Simulated assay, not measured.
Amino acid sequence: MTVNLFRLDASILGAASASSELADAAEATWVSAHPQGTVTRRHLGADPLPSDAWALATTAGFTPEDQRTEGQREALALAAALVSELKEADAVILAVPFYNFGVSQHFKAWVDLVITGAGPTDPVLKGIPTVLATTLGGGYGPGTPREGWDHSTPYLQRIVGEVWQAELTLVRRELTLAASTPGMEALKDLAAEQHTAALTAAREALATG
């Protein structure tokens, strides 16, 4: 039986994306273990979902089927397709960067549509090995000036791990901007250590999945 990996990227930085680098490492491990497997990809940064799709899909749920607009029907079909991509997966990689102290708007739109299509309590990833690769430009850990400012990681874990019940592995890399941002020079060595550790964790995350 053919197995399928679903990979989602949410970065706007293309080939320069730190989160996509981690996803590449996890994907390479999975492909090596499943040479006959298939990989389904969706890149929200390069091909964002329509900004009005969630509102249309949601209002369609309160509209009699014969009175729905074409836009509502298309939005419902999109939501159903997004759910199918997850439910047909045997493993999942989600590469989600940290933007403006929170979750990428591209990723949030995708989450909202999946929840609309599947229902708010449907565990669409129940028991599925899932790598959540997230990257942060600065440092947000205990004792840092911006401790508590990471409003992304807890949300991601809540949705993917608790609502969707994935078999979740979090791969988190901070200080991605240390090498290029004035004032962060003293953090370069620590950033390099975190980079290496995150790549190792990403490579190992789907080694048996």
Rank of each mutant, 00 (worst) to 15 (best):
T2W: 11
N4H: 12
N4M: 10
L5N: 03
L5Q: 05
F6Y: 15
R7W: 08
L8F: 10
L13V: 01
G14V: 15
A16D: 12
S17V: 02
S17E: 00
S20C: 04
L22S: 06
A28Q: 12
T29E: 13
T29H: 07
W30C: 01
W30K: 01
S32A: 14
H34F: 11
P35M: 12
G37S: 14
G37C: 04
T40H: 06
T40A: 06
H43F: 08
A46T: 15
D47Y: 12
P48W: 08
P48H: 05
L49N: 05
P50E: 00
A53E: 09
A55C: 05
L56E: 07
T59F: 14
A60H: 02
G61Q: 14
G61R: 09
F62L: 10
F62N: 13
T63K: 11
E65P: 00
D66L: 06
R68H: 04
T69G: 10
E74Q: 15
A75T: 08
A77G: 11
A79L: 06
A79S: 11
A80T: 15
A80C: 07
V83G: 11
K87L: 04
K87P: 02
K87V: 07
E88T: 14
V92T: 09
V92W: 03
I93R: 13
A95P: 01
V96A: 07
P97I: 00
N100F: 12
N100E: 09
N100T: 13
F101S: 01
G102C: 07
G102F: 03
S104H: 09
S104E: 08
Q105A: 12
Q105V: 00
K108I: 13
K108H: 13
A109N: 15
V111A: 13
D112Y: 12
V114H: 02
I115M: 10
G117V: 03
A118N: 01
G119W: 10
T121D: 14
T121Y: 14
D122G: 04
D122I: 05
L125E: 07
K126F: 08
K126N: 13
G127F: 14
G127T: 06
I128R: 12
P129C: 10
T130V: 04
T130P: 02
T130F: 10
V131H: 10
L132E: 04
L132M: 10
A133H: 02
T134R: 03
T134H: 04
T135M: 10
T135N: 15
T135C: 15
G137T: 02
G138W: 05
Y140K: 07
P142T: 10
G143T: 11
T144G: 00
P145V: 14
H151S: 03
T153C: 02
P154C: 08
P154F: 03
L156A: 09
L156K: 03
R158P: 02
I159R: 08
I159K: 01
G161P: 07
V163A: 15
V163D: 10
Q165T: 08
Q165R: 08
L168Y: 06
L168T: 02
V171Y: 04
E174W: 02
L175V: 05
A178I: 03
A179P: 01
M184D: 05
E185Y: 08
E185F: 03
A186H: 15
K188H: 11
K188S: 09
K188C: 09
D189W: 06
L190K: 05
E193K: 13
T196A: 14
A197K: 09
A198R: 03
T200C: 02
T200R: 11
A201P: 11
A202R: 04
E204Q: 14
L206E: 12
L206K: 06
G209Y: 06
